[in-house]
Nucleic acid binder design. Structure first.
Length: 437
DNA sequence: GAGTTTGAAACT
DNA sequence: CAGTTTCAAACTC
């Protein structure tokens, strides 16, 4: 395997800030990244390395070359429309500190999420991409993506495909010849159409903008309503507005909760923990709904205060295949042998790892018998977090090399895929080596 | 469906 | 941070 992270800390600041000094606005929605700040290769945006459910695009810090500014990693609305401010109460927000915006959401990280091994987003190459929530018309803020001049739509489509490929829900996207982007999310009844238009509101009038017809809800159509944590330096992404939250991802199979004492405002409540309002539940005295939005938001804030990762997925999921991943915290089972659904690992159909503090665990691959709920056909013992990290490092290094050598995006993609194949070969070799007596 | 068991979340 | 309590889901009968 080639490359190392050290070689990759060569970020330059190639992106430009949008001057929005005249917009003293607060955030209006969208997701920021977590506090993990990673260096991107050569100034290129990189997929964030947060929890698997919240990979985002990282962009270089404008004043500290080589550093990623986490403050930039969020949507914000430069407008001060009552609609936006109603949607996101003040107490959850902090003054706008930065102008970068990005196309981001609670999406599955492409790789190991807890290490600086982000994969480069080749579709951005060296081009600046500026994304923003813009003040919209009567329907609310616009979801826009600014494509730099001279950049044709094909790479953008590739990028959009890449982006949406990380969204937990299957999303089909395409940029048609007339510049219309179609997103299809099974959470929603129908496709979402976005149209490329000129963007006179942006400087130089030299960018294209993707504009959604019905604005804000479209953002949430591709983003599950998981609440984001905040750290000391970044503002929190507010929860989605009630109307969207209550309906978002409802099509996903979700069990109704039966909470009686928590008002569905604690993590005991699965709905609340999953970031959705209760709907068709059997709970009593429920406050996890639009009618109690203020109390609900306070509860969210409280949870995030206790644990900034409270609403992140506990499962660091494998992107595909039968490897589900691993539990970020690990379980603490004592009596179930980790073979009942009391065990979070077992329930998630993953094996216990060294992170677990369980007693008498039987949810592991002992070489002769797999005890997990659905017997994993993949060699979990080989595909460890360290291996995933190593693979990601290799892919990142390859992407960086392609960028350094100014290869076309397509060529760069091939190089990365070649490297991925090489990594897989080594993993397979390791498998057989491990299974050889 | 009621009662019990279990382990995560919350609390001290 | 460890021990205890609270809670709701999973499980059993």
């Amino acid at each position: 395997m080639s490359g190392s992270m050290a070689e990759l800390d060569t970020a330059q600041n190639k992106l430009e800030y949008i001057d929005t000094d005249d917009h003293s606005s607060k955030d209006c929605g969208g997701f920021e990244n977590d506090s993990n700040a990673h260096r991107g290769p050569a100034g290129a945006p990189v997929w964030g390395a947060g929890a698997p459910s919240d990979a985002s695009l990282l962009v270089p810090h404008p004043h500290q070359p080589g550093m990623v500014d986490s403050l930039t990693l969020r949507f914000h609305c430069p407008c001060q429309s009552p609609q936006c401010q109603l949607t996101y109460p003040d107490f959850l927000l902090e003054p706008q500190a930065s102008q970068y915006q990005l196309f981001s959401g609670p999406v599955a990280a492409p790789a190991d999420s807890s290490h600086p091994s982000s994969a480069s987003a080749p579709w951005f190459a060296n081009e600046p991409i500026l994304c923003s929530m813009m003040p919209g018309d009567l329907h609310g803020p616009l979801f826009s993506i600014c494509v730099p001049p001279g950049m044709d739509h094909q790479p953008f489509q590739d990028g959009l495909t890449e982006f949406t490929s990380h969204i937990p829900q299957p999303v089909v996207c395409n940029v048609s010849a007339d510049g219309q982007v179609v997103l299809v999310n099974p959470c929603e009844p129908g496709p979402v159409f976005m149209t490329m238009t000129s963007a006179p509101t942006h400087r130089d009038n030299d960018v294209s903008v993707l504009r959604t017809p019905s604005q804000l809800p479209q953002y949430h159509k591709t983003a599950c309503p998981l609440y984001e944590s905040r750290d000391q330096t970044t503002s929190m992404q507010p929860p989605p507005p009630p109307a969207q939250t209550a309906g978002t991802c409802q099509s996903k199979s979700r069990k109704p909760c039966h909470c009686t004492r928590s008002q569905c405002l604690k993590l005991y409540c699965e709905c609340f923990a999953n970031g959705v309002m209760c709907s068709d539940c059997d709970c009593s005295n429920c406050h996890n709904n639009a009618e109690h939005e203020t109390k609900r938001l306070k509860a969210i804030k409280s949870c995030l205060g206790r644990n900034p990762d409270a609403f992140r997925s506990k499962i660091a999921a494998g992107k595909s295949g039968e490897v589900k991943g691993w539990h970020n915290k690990g379980c603490n089972c004592k009596r179930s042998g980790c073979l009942k659904n009391y065990c979070e690992c077992y329930e998630a159909n993953i094996m216990c790892t060294s992170s677990c503090k369980c007693v008498d665990c039987r949810n592991y691959d002992d070489g002769s018998e797999m005890h997990s709920k659905e017997k994993n056909k993949w060699p979990v013992s080989v595909i460890t977090p360290a291996v995933v990290e190593a693979v990601c490092s290799c892919l990142l290094a390859q992407a960086e090399e392609a960028e350094r050598e100014a290869h076309s995006p397509r060529r760069a993609e091939h190089m990365v895929l070649d490297e991925f194949g090489h990594c897989l070969t080594q993993i397979v070799k390791a498998m057989f080596k491990d299974n050889t007596p």
